[in-house]
Simulated assay, not measured.
Amino acid sequence: MPINIIIGLPFILLGILFLFLAKRNAKRAEESLAWLSTRGVITSSMLASFDSDDSPTTYQPKVEYEYTVANQSYTGKRIAFGIAGSSSEAAARKVVLQYAIGSAVEVFYNPAKPSDAVLERSAATSNKVFWIMGGVFIVAGLLTLLI
């Protein structure tokens, strides 16, 4: 098998995966606009950081909340659809401060599956990165196939 195919196809497949994830997150965010809401309370809110030798530190707000639907208690961890990570510690810390422990929040939940909940009916900021990376990987893969 030619080397350009061996290299190009994985790039294209990875690009398709990124685009699939971005599309799924956007679709879930759109669907959540029809979800019901209830009051909840933040039970945990902290900033996590992930270090890697070959990339900058990533900061991710980790938030947990409790809410009740039809006298059933639930715990949620999703802020928005997708990964809520950032290379900016200040941006991630701002989210953590927005969801301080003990604060009341509006929780949006799927009426068909109340355990499926979110605090923000939108795709996470990482979703933009998924769209961009998907396009970049597909273009890189196609260029590799043409060489």
Rank of each mutant, 00 (worst) to 15 (best):
K27S: 14
I132H: 03
V136D: 09
E66M: 07
V129Y: 15
S44A: 07
P56E: 14
T57Y: 09
R39F: 12
A26L: 13
D51R: 07
L146N: 09
Y59F: 15
S55Y: 09
F20N: 06
T57E: 04
L33W: 06
A100M: 09
L33V: 04
I79T: 04
I42Y: 08
T125Y: 10
L21S: 08
A140E: 05
A117H: 00
Y74T: 01
G102M: 04
P114W: 05
E120H: 09
Y109T: 00
L119Y: 08
K62R: 12
K62F: 12
R28E: 15
L33C: 04
A100S: 14
Y109A: 02
F108L: 03
Q72R: 12
Y99C: 07
S88P: 06
A80V: 05
S55H: 09
T75L: 07
D54C: 08
A117F: 05
L142H: 10
A123R: 00
A91G: 01
A84R: 06
S87T: 14
Y65W: 04
R39K: 13
F108M: 05
Y59T: 06
Q60D: 09
F18K: 00
N127A: 10
P2E: 10
F50T: 14
D54R: 08
I3E: 12
F108E: 00
I132N: 02
G102S: 07
S115R: 09
F11T: 07
F137V: 03
F11H: 12
S44F: 08
I5C: 03
A100T: 14
Y109S: 08
E30V: 08
R24N: 13
D51W: 03
V107E: 02
N71S: 14
S49T: 06
I83V: 15
E66L: 07
A104H: 11
K62Y: 11
P61W: 01
L33A: 08
L33N: 10
I7M: 13
F20L: 11
L9T: 11
R24H: 15
G85W: 12
Y59H: 05
Y99I: 03
V69G: 07
L19I: 01
A48P: 02
I42G: 00
N110D: 09
L146H: 12
L97V: 11
F20K: 01
E89G: 07
